[in-house]
Design a protein around this nucleic acid. Structure first.
Length: 193
DNA sequence: CTCGGAAGTC
DNA sequence: GACTTCCGAG
């Protein structure tokens, strides 16, 4: 059962087996998935600057605990709309997925979701995660520099638009419309596998 | 850091 | 085609 954790995962269901102190957390199952989901959950519900959209003192994540999230390849697959088969995501799809995962909030998060503007808090980690998810065989290390160049590539095709701000990127309204909002402007997550 | 040209890879 | 790699310029 612990292999099937997904968006519907409800940590409350696991109350019975978890000692809820994040530092001395004890879990009966030897499952990293559960631990990761839990960490994401804990962060998600902690009083945070993440939800509030304060424009000043904004996004000082220096005090936010950071940890490596073990890669689970399965959760990064998307269903190809044409072939209906699972495949690894394109870069912009990877970004959408990343921004939707609470356990990765210390890697990157929206600063204005309605406009599709987000900030990358841990540039190098995001770049390495992208390389791992893409799993393109290369002897070289994916750097933030190259990762950012790939995003800049999207400016011409209007998948993303310039922000001219450090570590800050923005999806175009076209992308927003196609991948984030439904007809009623509610969030939709058609990329979830 | 950001931007975008140019060449290379899959 | 979709990046990846390298890089000069701002």
């Amino acid at each position: 059962m612990f292999d099937e954790i997904d968006e519907n995962y409800d940590p409350v269901l696991f109350d019975g087996i978890i000692d809820f102190d994040p530092n001395t957390m004890y879990i009966e199952q030897n499952s990293n998935d559960v631990i990761d989901s839990l960490k994401g959950w804990l962060i998600d519900f902690s009083p945070s600057q993440f939800e509030t959209e304060s424009t000043d003192s904004l996004n000082d994540f220096s005090e936010v605990p950071s940890y490596d999230v073990p890669l689970n390849r399965k959760e990064w697959l998307v269903e190809d709309l044409i072939s209906k088969r699972q495949r690894s995501p394109r870069l912009f799809e990877f970004l959408i997925l990343l921004l939707g995962k609470p356990q990765y909030i210390c890697y990157a998060s929206f600063i204005d979701k309605s406009k599709g503007i987000f900030l990358i808090h841990q540039p190098q980690k995001v770049a390495e995660l992208w390389q791992a998810v893409k799993s393109r065989q290369s002897n070289q290390r994916m750097t933030y520099d190259k990762f950012a160049r790939a995003i800049r590539w999207y400016y011409k095709s209007n998948i993303m638009q310039k922000t001219n701000t450090r570590y800050t990127f923005q999806f175009s309204s076209k992308t927003l419309k196609n991948y984030f909002l439904d007809e009623n402007n509610n969030t939709k997550m058609c990329l979830s596998s």
